[in-house]
């Protein structure tokens, strides 16, 4: 692993860009998967790509990793252009691909040793496995590992060349809550060691906990980029009131407009978002808004169900910006 001195060095380097993506475009036939993505990742930060499936997160990562050729734009990693100096880029990055399967018949230590041999310089195998909590599994075949263990092995393989930047593509998808927690601890430990981490996810809680900055993506574009706190603050409200107004979609146009107007007039409500028949009212004063909402809804004979209140989250930021939920297909 990176020595303490290096970690300090890296920490003092933070604030310097290590990845620069400028206008990345990728087309598959008529479909544009990534459409002019542009961002800078700073050394030592955990940078999250958050968005629903099909937002272009994986394609964006793979263009920066040099696995896919961009149809437009440039990606630089640690000062190397991925088109001109791909081999150099590969030396300084470590990659965990979404749902990669490995050689099932090989043992854990054999597969790590093999990946280590692909690089000009690499870390010793046993301490690495120990750090990934796989030491007691090192003589087991890959096919006998649990989902969480396989994912930790994938991360061990991504670290085997002691990279400056680690790409983790949906590392916790499909894991049970316990295994997710373990993986989060590992990711935070890597950050402490000074690694720059680019992480894609469609779990907003994960992005909130792990990431220094989040790049919110939708339909191949960056729709927002900031720290999780500031993204939520951009809603200008810290709470949300959510409910389902069944039958709303079949109402006549005039009645629908009237209903939205009514909701906007609720005390202290800053914003009203809706998707299908679910409404979300954002407010800074939950108590005042809730009392006023119940009163007004009763007076207007508005029928509602599944009423809940909660703290505003990144999910709300996404809904506010796109009118769709992160979890929709």
């Amino acid at each position: 692993m990176t020595s303490a001195a290096e970690a300090i060095q890296n920490a003092s380097d933070s604030g310097q860009p290590i990845i620069e993506a400028d206008g990345l475009v990728k087309r598959y036939g008529a479909h544009t998967a990534v459409n002019g993505v542009r961002f800078t990742v700073m050394r030592g930060e955990v940078f999250g790509l958050l968005g629903p499936n099909g937002a272009g997160k994986t394609t964006t990562m793979e263009m920066i990793e040099g696995l896919r050729r961009p149809d437009g734009g440039v990606a630089n990693v640690a000062g190397f252009d991925t088109r001109k100096n791909l081999q150099k880029v590969k030396e300084v990055i470590g990659v965990q691909l979404q749902s990669t399967s490995m050689f099932d018949l090989l043992k854990v230590k054999e597969i790590v040793r093999m990946y280590a041999s692909f690089y000009p310089k690499s870390l010793p195998v046993e301490p690495l496995l120990e750090e990934m909590m796989l030491k007691e599994k090192m003589n087991d075949r890959v096919k006998h590992l649990s989902g969480g263990q396989k994912q930790r092995l994938a991360i061990a393989l991504a670290l085997v060349n002691d990279p400056q930047v680690v790409f983790l593509d949906e590392p916790t998808t499909g894991l049970d809550p316990q295994a997710r927690r373990t993986l989060w601890d590992i990711i935070l430990k890597l950050k402490k060691q000074g690694k720059t981490i680019v992480l894609s996810t469609h779990y907003m809680d994960e992005a909130h906990i792990l990431c220094d900055r989040i790049c919110l993506m939708d339909q191949g574009k960056v729709i927002a980029l900031d720290s999780p706190e500031r993204l939520v603050r951009s809603l200008q409200s810290d709470s949300a009131i959510e409910f389902r107004a069944s039958g709303y979609e079949s109402l006549p146009e005039a009645e629908r407009a009237g209903m939205v107007q009514l909701l906007q007039s609720v005390a202290e409500v800053k914003q009203v978002d809706m998707r299908k028949d679910v409404f979300i009212l954002y407010t800074d004063n939950l108590q005042a808004s809730l009392i006023d909402f119940i009163g007004k809804a009763g007076a207007a004979d508005l029928s509602y169900a599944e009423l809940q209140t909660r703290t505003a989250t990144l999910e709300d930021v996404f809904i506010h910006m796109t009118g769709r939920s992160l979890r929709e297909e």
């Binding site: 040099g66 696995l67 990669t100 399967s101 990946y115 692909f118 690089y119």
Partner: peptide
């Protein structure tokens, strides 16, 4: 299964 891609991302 992505095994080749994973190797492609190394040197």
């Amino acid at each position: 299964r992505g095994v080749l891609r994973r190797m492609q991302s190394t040197t």
